[in-house]
Nucleic acid binder design. Structure first.
Length: 544
RNA sequence: GGGCCCGUGGUGUAGUGGCCUAACAUGCCAGCCUGUCACGCUGGAGAUCGCCGGUUCGAAUCCGGUCGGGCCCGCCA
């Protein structure tokens, strides 16, 4: 846009005070730029508007940060305080558009598949299962509270009983737990449920949807594997040390228990004797790591539950060098062979009496090495299924079995009897979808028979009365010809973040909260007036 | 509940015990320039170094606490 003091002196004068973020209305003639003033760098570099009239519709205060350009180090709390300005920035707009394309594509694909969008309430009943509830006091019923749903789990199962055999919803969910980069107190799930399905049916449907959606939202990013690999939980833990493996790179775990079982090294022998395991990985070309680099890895392993991390550098002559090398004796060759380790490589080993703990700790080290060696290609979309989770996990603190995922998950048919005879070994018809090492979502085929569900709850230490009290409607409904059914819930925020290529779900939410649950723009949460409290039959306890 | 990191003009950074009367860039204001498009030139304003307390002759700098933000463990699906 150009103004000329000769051709349109008023417009020229009106334009003079205008600064960044002012809103102006312009009338003029679009014309080719004069010879020599075109700018190939700009999309509109060939043309200009010769302004005849210019009106300032609204001036702008000087913005607290640059709206018109990227500013990498910008304090996030400042962005959140002025989110309406932050959202003007092209990068934010781009990310919210990715998210909108995602939800739009999901709706189109699922509606084509015959799914029906049904809304469920956000004022429901509190149950002690799972995460801590957000609660809402009832004005009409003194001393009573609603809970905001952690997910519409029971409601969607009731919809199955009601005969809506293909339900979906982009549902807002609420969990009052501590926050992370990938966790907000309120978030959005693609929630869906189907009747008369096996776990394969659900996985197939979700997989079709995920592929179609990915191709619409990010046609530029290749899907690593189609169909998605399907790993059992045991396989995922043994190979990747994670139930949400990043399969963009190898460096798989190798179990070394049998290889090193004979050495006189208590770090290995004691865990094995206790029923645990020894796992190793090979970090190619990292044999020259410094003390400091190794210490970081050891710290990382310890932070994730390992007692320690054994490191061995493969020398040119094939021998293994490290603090533990003197214990290795004649297993040195077997160890090297098991890991296919070459001179110059670094071998990293974790042993633990709990084989899952050993695998998980080394799995975190594996991810760290993937980052260090730049093996996690950010352009690739690596979806993977993990299924056949253990139904129950022993909760040592409360001394009872707890649902590994969801208390409504059904056992796989051949493990029904183990539910009571050997709960630790019973596997659920439970499946998780992971993308690039993030858990995108999970679901299961549900228990659709009341006696079985009651048995599962009983195992988890719920009394008959408590069950009836908290899950009465669902238990009753199962007695009225409830169809077999199953479904899944996918985290839309995480999915959008991964598709947008950002590591924080706040970047794909218009108005997110800080780690302490504050909305810096609206200044929430906030105290409420004494009259409001009184109306809700509440009294605030000062202190603590 | 716990661990770690950060907090210095509007914004991003430098400064880690005296040389700081706090520097640089950008932004802002004024003037000049007027075919520029990250315009240019000249000048100017703008910071009680998040807050409170302590140590010290002396604190942006060290210590304790506190507030705010972030990352992580626990927690959470």
């Amino acid at each position: 846009m150009v103004t000329s003091s000769d051709d349109a002196p008023e417009a020229h004068a009106a334009a003079d005070p205008a600064r960044n973020e002012w809103v102006v209305q312009v009338e003029g003639i679009v014309r080719a730029r004069p010879e020599g003033t075109a700018n190939a760098e700009l999309a509109t570099g060939e043309i200009e508007v010769a302004v005849d009239r210019l009106k300032v519709l609204n001036p702008s205060k000087v913005p607290p940060f640059y709206v018109n350009e990227e500013q990498p180090g910008l304090d996030e709390s400042l962005r959140l305080t002025h989110r309406y300005l932050d959202l003007r920035r092209p990068a934010m707009q781009e990310r919210l558009l990715v998210r909108a394309r995602l939800s739009g594509a999901i709706r189109r694909v699922l509606e084509d598949e015959g799914f029906v969008d049904i809304e469920t309430p956000t004022l429901i009943r509190s149950t002690p299962e799972g995460a801590r509830d957000f609660v809402v006091p009832s004005r009409l019923q003194p001393g009573q509270f609603y809970a905001l749903p952690q997910s519409p789990q029971q409601l969607k199962q009731l919809l199955m009983v009601a005969g809506y055999d293909r339900y979906y919803q982009l549902a807002r969910c609420y969990r009052d737990e501590d926050l992370r980069g990938d966790r907000q107190p309120e978030f959005t799930q693609l929630d869906l449920e189907m009747s008369f399905v096996t776990e394969t049916d659900v996985m197939d449907l979700v997989e079709r949807t995920a592929i179609a959606v990915s191709e619409v939202v990010r046609p530029d990013r290749p899907i690593l594997a189609d169909p998605f690999p399907r790993l059992t939980y045991a396989e995922a833990m043994n190979r990747y040390g994670s139930d949400k493996p990043d399969i963009r790179f190898g460096m798989e775990l190798v179990e070394l228990s049998s290889v090193v079982g004979t050495v006189e090294f208590r770090v290995f022998t004691e865990p094995i004797a206790a029923g645990g395991a020894v796992f190793g990985i090979r970090a190619p070309g990292c044999g020259g790591y410094s003390r400091a680099q190794l210490d970081e890895l050891i710290d990382l392993a310890k932070r994730h539950g390992a007692k320690g991390l054994v490191h061995l550098a493969v020398q040119d002559d094939g021998t293994l060098h490290g603090p533990a090398s003197k214990f290795l004796g004649d297993v040195e060759g077997g160890l090297r062979d098991a890991l296919a380790a070459e001179p110059g490589d670094l071998v990293l080993i974790v042993a633990d009496a709990d084989r899952i703990a050993a695998a998980e700790a080394l799995g975190r080290v594996r991810l760290e090495m993937g980052d260090r060696l730049d093996l996690r290609d950010p352009s690739v979309l690596a979806y993977v299924w993990v299924h056949r989770f253990p139904m129950f996990t022993w909760d040592a603190e409360s001394e009872r079995w707890d649902a590994t995922h969801n208390p409504f998950s059904a056992p796989i048919p051949e493990d029904v009897d183990r539910m009571t005879s050997d709960p630790a070994s019973a596997r659920a018809q439970q499946y998780d979808l992971a993308l690039n090492g993030w858990e995108l979502g999970g679901g299961s085929v549900r228990i659709h028979q009341r006696p079985l569900l009651e048995a599962a709850f009983a195992l988890m230490g719920h009394s008959i009365e408590a069950m009836r009290d908290q899950f009465g409607a669902l238990l009753d409904a199962l007695e009225y010809g409830a169809p077999p059914h199953g479904g899944i819930a996918i985290g839309i925020d995480r999915w959008a973040a991964l598709l947008a290529g950002v590591e924080n779900i706040r970047e794909v939410m218009a108005f997110p909260k800080t780690q302490s649950g504050a909305d810096l723009m609206m200044d929430a949460p906030s105290p409420i007036a004494p009259e409001q409290l009184a109306e809700l039959h509440l009294r605030v306890i000062e202190g603590d």
